[in-house]
Amino acid sequence: MSVKVCPDESACPVAVTVNVIGGKWKALILYHLLSGPRRFNELRKLLPDATQRMLTLQLRELEGDGIIHREIYKQIPPKVEYSLTNLGESLKPLILVMRDWGEEYEKTKPNI
């Protein structure tokens, strides 16, 4: 496999990917949405260390990038669900490889 040299950071496909799914919570949000739509409070329970503000910000960024869809149901109390778009679904292989790599790393990580 050959690796192309990127002329600059803005033209590097890896940088583009990291800009979209990078950050502490985005990959975890995507991982939890792989199994289907989730409500905001479900995501908060799955990511207890993420503040409400940070989770909201990360969800908005993913929505703005076309990775997730936010569905608002007109009912009392209001119901909001987040799900992967087709573009978000295309990240599934990447997220699963990250999961698998993390499992292997946990088994073999060096004791530093």
Rank of each mutant, 00 (worst) to 15 (best):
L55E: 03
Y73A: 15
E63A: 14
T108F: 03
G22F: 07
S2F: 06
E42V: 11
R60M: 12
N111D: 14
T85M: 01
A15I: 07
L84D: 02
V18W: 01
L47I: 14
I68C: 05
R38S: 13
D49S: 15
K107E: 13
R44C: 15
K45W: 05
L47A: 08
L84Q: 04
L62V: 09
E106D: 13
S10I: 12
L91I: 10
T85V: 05
M54D: 15
E63F: 05
I67C: 10
K24Q: 11
E9M: 07
I68N: 01
D65P: 00
M54Y: 08
Y105R: 13
P13S: 10
Q58L: 04
L34A: 04
A27F: 06
S10D: 08
P93I: 15
E89A: 09
C12E: 05
C12D: 12
T108L: 13
T56H: 12
K24E: 15
I68D: 02
V80A: 07
P37I: 04
G64F: 05
E42I: 12
L59S: 04
H69K: 12
A15S: 11
R38M: 10
V20S: 08
V16H: 07
Y82D: 01
I72T: 08
R53A: 15
I68Y: 02
P48M: 15
S83N: 01
T17E: 09
A50V: 14
V20E: 13
D49F: 10
Y82Q: 03
N111L: 13
V3G: 00
K74S: 12
P93K: 11
H32E: 10
I67N: 07
I68L: 03
